[in-house]
Design a binder for these strands. Structure first.
Lengths: 336, 336
DNA sequence: TTCATTAACGAAAGCGCTTTCGGTAAAGAG
DNA sequence: CTCTTTACCGAAAGCGCTTTCGTTAATGAA
C-alpha cells in the first residue's frame, strides 16, 4: 500500500504538505493541492486508519453491544432492525460499526475494556437488563454512549413510549367492548416490561376496569415459549379474560398457539394484541394486531444523540421518547 | 489511558521488556514478568489496538459486507443468522467484526477501499449477486475473503447444497402423490436460485415428470411480494399445479397469501414447500414445510475458512457445500 | 525603499506499540 | 582460570499519519 511518503516523494513535497492537502488545510496552494491529489489518484493511495487514529485520537468507529441474555444476538428481529437503522445513519457521517467480542485474544475482558482497546468514539447498547454490570460500567465511563430500550440511566437514552403503548392497547381493546382484559407482561426487571405494565394499569384504572386476580402475569423475557406458558395459565383461570394485551409479538405468537391448542380461536374467543410489530406479525394467522415500535426512528435518534456527544466531546444526559402506533390487523375482535 | 511507557516507568524496566512480557516472549524472566503484570493490573493498562495494528500489520478485525440489493441489510433473517454464527466463531479466536460504511468521510469509495483503509485481516461477504463489481473487486484483491451463498467464484466459498435441496423438495412432493409440480424460482442470476432450479429439473427428470408450460416461473429476488405475484400467474394457468416448490420462505409466504386470496387453501388444494427455514416458517398458518439451510454450520465453516487463510497468509480456493434438511410441517399434503 | 503581513511550505516530534540486534552478566565447559 | 553459552534486558528504529512551530518568499503598506 502506498503511504503518504510515497506521495511526498513522487510530488516533491513534504509529507506535511501532503497531509495538509488531504485534510483541506488552508495553507497549501490550490496548485500543489491538485498535483498531490493527482498523485494520490495515480498511486491509488488510501490513508491508513490505524495510523490516523493513533495520531488523532479519533477512530471513526462506534462500538455496538448487543444483549446476549437470550443468546439470539443479531438474530433478534427488533434489535437488528434498530441497529440497521442506526448503521445507516452513522454511516452517513462516516462511522463504521464494530461488534466487539468479549475475548481479547483469549483473555476475558469486559466490553468497556474491549471498546477502550479499540478506541471507539462512542458506544451504542441494546440490552434489556438495566442492571447488567457491563452496561453500568460503560455508562460510568467517559466514552460517549447511548442506550436503547432503557429509560432511567445516567446517560443518553432512546426508548419507545411504552406507557402510551400500553394505554393504546388497552383502550383499543376496551373500544371493542372488552372489559376482562389481561396482560401478559414482559419481565418487570426490564424497563420496557415495567413501563408497559404501568401503561396497562393506568389505562385500566382510567377506564374504571378492575384487574382480576391472575390477570397480570409475567411472561418473562419475551420469548414465544414464555408467552405460551403464560397464556396457558390464563386459560386455566375460572374466569378467562376475553382479551389480552401481550407485551411482545413473540410472546403473543406463543399465546395464540396456546389458545389454538386449547381448541379456542383468535379473535373469536379471545382477542390478542401484541407489541413491537416484527415482520412476522403481518403474516401469521390471524394477522397480529399490535403496537408498532418505530425502529427506524429509534435508530435514527440514537445515532443523532451519539454523534452529538462525540462532536461536543462530552457525555450528554438526554432522553428521547419515541411515539408508538397502533396497527390494527385481525387478532382482535368486537366482544360478543 | 495508561501506556506501555507508564508501565515501564513504574516498574523500572524498558518498554521493550514490558512489551515482551505482555507478549510472552521467552527472554524475560518469570520474576520481572510478574512485576510487570502486576503493574499492568494496578494501572488498569490496556494496549492500544491502533498502535498495535500499525506496528504488527494485523488488526484482528474482519470486515463484513452485506448485500444491499433489497435494502434490508442485517434485517434479513437468513443473512443475520449466518452472520451471528460467524461472529460467535470468529470471536472465539479474538476477531471483531466491522461493518463498513461505503462512505469514507463523504468521499464515496468502494468496499475494498474501505476495508483496505481499515486494514482488516479478512473479509466475509453475503451477497446474492455474483456479478456485483464490488464483490469481484474484493475477490481479486489480496485480502483473504470468503463469500457465502455463491458457488463459482475464484475464492473460498460456503454455500448450501441447493441442488440437493431442490431434489429433496421435489421428491417429497412426489412422495405425496403430486405430479403437477411447479417451481417458483429465485432469480437465475443468483447462484442459489440457479442451483435450486437445477435441482428441481433434475429431480423432475429422474422421476419422469414433465415440467408443464409455465410451471417454472421466476420469483425474482426472494421477496414476499414477488412470491405472491409469481403464484398469481401460476393460478391463472389453465392447468394449475397441485404442488409448488418455492425457492425461498419469504416467497412461499407470498405464494400462500395469493392462494388464500383466490379462495383456495394450503395444503388442501395446493401444497407449498419453501426454502430456508426462517424463524417465521414455524409460526405462519399453515406451518411451512421447507428445506432448512444450516445457518449455524454455514457461519461456522465460513469463519474457519477465513481464519485459515489469515493464518496461512494466503488466499485459498476452497468450497464448502453444506447439507440441507427437509423440515416437514403442515403446508404439504397427500394429493387427493 | 523599508517594514509589516500574508501565503506557502517543511522539520521534527509525537501517537503507542513491536522487533531486531547488541550488550552484559551469570552460568557452564574445559 | 579462561572461554563459550545462555539468560535477560534495552536502545533505537520503524509502523503511517498529524500538527506545531518556524522559515522563507512574496506582497502590500507607508
Amino acid at each position: 500500500m502506498a503511504t503518504i511518503y510515497d506521495i511526498a516523494k513522487k510530488t516533491g513535497f513534504s509529507t506535511t504538505t501532503v497531509s495538509k492537502a488531504l485534510n483541506n488545510y488552508s495553507d497549501v496552494s490550490e496548485k500543489t493541492k491538485q498535483k498531490i491529489l493527482q498523485a494520490v489518484e495515480e498511486m491509488g493511495y488510501l490513508p491508513n486508519a490505524h495510523a490516523q487514529s493513533l495520531s488523532t485520537k479519533k477512530s471513526w468507529t462506534i462500538g455496538v453491544m448487543f444483549s446476549e441474555s437470550n443468546e439470539v444476538g443479531m438474530k433478534h428481529p427488533f434489535f437488528s432492525a434498530i441497529i440497521e437503522s442506526f448503521r445507516k445513519n452513522a454511516e452517513r457521517e462516516g462511522y463504521d460499526l464494530i461488534f466487539a467480542s468479549r475475548n481479547l485474544r483469549n483473555r476475558d475482558i469486559s466490553y468497556l475494556e474491549h471498546f477502550s482497546y479499540r478506541a471507539v468514539d462512542g458506544i451504542v447498547v441494546i440490552c434489556s437488563d438495566p442492571q447488567d454490570p457491563q452496561v453500568q460500567e460503560m455508562i460510568n465511563s467517559t466514552i460517549p454512549i447511548v442506550v436503547i430500550d432503557m429509560n432511567k440511566q445516567n446517560c443518553s437514552l432512546v426508548f419507545s413510549d411504552n406507557i402510551e403503548g400500553g394505554k393504546l392497547a388497552v383502550n383499543y381493546l376496551h373500544s371493542l367492548g372488552h372489559t376482562k382484559i389481561a396482560h401478559i407482561a414482559g419481565d418487570a426487571l426490564t424497563d420496557a416490561g415495567a413501563e408497559r405494565i404501568k401503561g396497562f394499569k393506568k389505562a385500566m384504572n382510567e377506564l374504571n376496569l378492575p384487574i382480576h386476580d391472575g390477570y397480570l402475569i409475567n411472561g418473562g423475557l419475551f420469548s414465544i415459549g414464555e408467552g405460551r406458558e403464560a397464556m396457558e395459565k390464563l386459560l386455566m383461570l375460572d374466569d378467562v379474560p376475553t382479551a389480552v394485551f401481550v407485551a411482545g409479538d413473540h410472546m403473543a405468537i406463543g399465546a395464540i398457539e396456546a389458545i389454538k391448542e386449547k381448541g379456542l380461536s383468535v379473535p373469536e374467543d379471545i382477542s390478542i394484541i401484541g407489541y413491537d410489530d416484527i415482520e412476522m406479525a403481518a403474516y401469521i394467522t390471524p394477522k397480529l394486531t399490535t403496537i408498532k415500535q418505530d425502529t427506524d426512528m429509534i435508530g435514527y435518534q440514537a445515532a443523532q444523540l451519539l454523534m452529538k456527544q462525540i462532536i461536543q466531546k462530552k457525555k450528554l444526559i438526554t432522553s428521547k421518547r419515541i411515539p408508538v402506533e397502533l396497527i390494527i390487523r385481525e387478532s382482535c375482535a368486537q366482544k360478543k
